[in-house]
Nucleic acid binder design. Structure first.
Length: 575
DNA sequence: CTAGGGTTAG
């Protein structure tokens, strides 16, 4: 239960009134006006007028600073900025180095939920402290300035704060702020690179590093971070434990995730949710549902995200009735109102099961405005089940909401092409050209000996490129001997003018696979992370390679994992 | 004189 909200903002009811009176009576406030500081700070978020009257009566820098700090961490951070303005107007109080860190934290919090982001207060504060000569003088100010620019999405400015800070001032929190700035911008390889330059690492450092590894699928580096942590700690704290098991799951290493899960103390709902979601996408949806049952049996309440993981498990297991049941019982049993994400999971669930009419009916019945994600789930199902009629409807709905949606354009154009309606194909193509729509280029990441390599389709940038392409040639011959025919169905017309088969044979995940094959010993697991969905051709090549070369290959694509082993895949060819 | 920075996972 949340604490009861303050019921009044009048000065009369403030509980510290008695203390205030005593301080006045015994003359303490006269002797030291800063004695009002704790009173004003503790009143700021519940009885602001009272706090302001205290500050007016006893205006000291110290009192303003503590009150700004209190407001900065309270429910209305903009009041911290407002109070700073009134501080500037009061000649008896001058901002000092203690004023700025909480003020900048308040400015950063103002950015969190807004778009477009109002960066103006923060940059004004920066200008203000710069005029006072406090720029680059104080490591606390540097760290909070850096965090503010990170929150504003201005990485160059954040980096500049770091670069301009004197080297002897670059302590661990400042490095950690920089790390999190890169992390928040999605620059994961730079996070790995930066962390290697750090003089030391603490838990916050490792959280950023492990999180970056999770995004990249960089298992070796993630394992290194885990070992580094385990050297100095007896048990795993909840937050790092959750980050670690998420990392193992997102690298497809389910066993290690289980062991971290078992040794993590004080698991919270996030810990459980990450584990359930990880099992669901790693081909173990039944285990995910068993774990959910265990979670409930120990009295841990699921939250909205747990339920997304549970519904995703049902979808991956093909458990239509169970999934619908969970969605239906959410409001009653867990007091959770289904969100559009939950409906999306069930549309996905119905869609995979081929129940396209029912999925369509569900979309029409949701109590929200259906979004691109919802229609997109249906569109994917229509592509898999080759339902042109509903697919066209979904694609048109998507294009109404987002005329630049590449998937919908490609679907429509493929439908028209299959039907021989070339004039309509041309129309879609022209529209795509006009809107400058393109599918993001496919890229794959493979990590070898702790170094992350990224490949684009047809990439020649790797120093061992010749050997990679030689290996790729061998793989192509091997799989065709096994009866594999290149499946060009999924090659979309708009990639380029190259021959489709050549294009297909140089998909980024195949290049990553080839590098994995030449750089690791027989029997070693090859782990690849792909930014898009794996294509049908690559999927069947991976299956054959896993058998012929006796390899376990784990591919993480946009939505799930494919564990290839002995010629088959954990996704059961359904993705 | 007093006090202050980084906090992640789905």
């Amino acid at each position: 239960m949340p604490p009861p909200a303050a019921t009044t903002t009048t000065t009369g009811s403030f509980p510290n009134k008695a203390l205030h009176a005593r301080l006045l009576r015994n003359g303490a406030l006269n002797a030291d006006p800063s004695a009002a500081a704790p009173l004003a700070a503790s009143a700021a978020n519940s009885s602001l007028p009272y706090a302001l009257s205290l500050l007016q009566a006893h205006p000291t820098t110290f009192s303003y600073n503590t009150t700004i700090r209190s407001l900065a961490h309270g429910p209305s951070p903009h009041l911290a900025v407002a109070l700073y303005r009134s501080m500037l107007l009061n000649p008896l109080s001058n901002p000092n180095n203690y004023t700025y860190p909480p003020l900048l934290a308040a400015c950063a919090r103002l950015l969190a939920a807004r778009s477009p982001k109002p960066a103006a207060p923060g940059t004004a504060v920066h200008a203000s402290l710069f005029r006072r000569g406090l720029d680059s003088r104080d490591r606390f100010i540097s760290a909070s300035l850096l965090s503010f620019y990170a929150a504003a999405g201005d990485l160059p400015a954040a980096r500049q704060v770091f670069d301009r800070s004197p080297p002897n001032q670059r302590d661990l929190p400042l490095w950690n702020s920089l790390l999190h700035a890169y992390l928040s911008q999605g620059l994961y390889t730079q996070v790995l690179h930066l962390s290697r330059q750090m003089p030391a690492a603490d838990e916050v450092t490792l959280l950023a590093l492990v999180s970056a590894c999770a995004h990249l699928g960089a298992l070796d580096t993630g394992r290194w971070a885990h070992a580094y942590y385990a050297r100095t700690r007896r048990s795993t704290t909840r937050n790092l434990g959750t980050a670690l098991l998420n990392m193992y799951m997102r690298c497809g290493d389910v066993e290690s995730a289980w062991s971290v899960f078992r040794e993590t103390l004080d698991k919270d709902v996030r810990t459980w949710s990450v584990m359930i979601a990880g099992l669901a996408v790693n081909g173990l949806p039944r285990d995910a549902l068993d774990l959910f049952a265990e979670m409930k049996s120990i009295g841990m309440d699921p939250d909205s995200i747990t339920m997304t993981a549970v519904l995703s498990a049902c979808a991956h297991a093909g458990m239509v009735d169970e999934g619908k049941g969970f969605l239906g019982c959410m409001p009653v049993e867990y007091r959770l109102q289904p969100t559009i994400e939950h409906y999306g999971c069930v549309v996905d669930l119905l869609g995979r099961a081929g129940k396209l009419e029912e999925a369509l009916a569900l979309i029409k019945s949701v109590p929200f405005e259906a979004d691109v994600v919802l229609w997109g789930a249906l569109l994917v199902a229509c592509r898999v089940h080759k339902n042109v009629h509903i697919g066209q409807m979904a694609a048109r709905e998507i294009l109404k909401l987002d005329p630049r949606h590449a998937g919908a354009c490609v679907f429509l154009s493929n439908v028209y092409a299959a039907d021989g309606k070339w004039d309509l194909v041309q129309e879609v193509r022209n529209s795509m050209k006009e809107h400058r729509i393109f599918k993001p280029p496919g890229s794959s990441i493979v990590e070898l000996d702790g170094v992350v390599y990224e490949f684009l389709s047809g990439d020649h940038s790797h120093p061992q490129s010749d050997r990679i392409y030689a290996m790729l040639d061998e793989v192509c011959k091997t799989v065709s001997l096994k009866g594999h025919k290149p499946s060009t169905k999924q090659v979309t017309f708009d990639i380029d003018e190259e021959d489709k088969e050549v294009c297909l044979s140089q998909h980024s995940e195949k290049l990553a696979l080839a590098l994995g094959l030449i750089s690791t010993k027989r029997g070693a697991v090859i782990r690849i992370v792909k930014n898009l969905r794996i294509c049908e051709d690559c999927h069947s090549v991976m299956k054959i390679v896993s058998e012929v070369y006796d390899r376990v290959i784990v591919v993480r694509d946009r939505n799930r994992f494919h564990h290839f082993k002995n010629g088959s895949c954990s996704c059961l060819d359904y993705w």
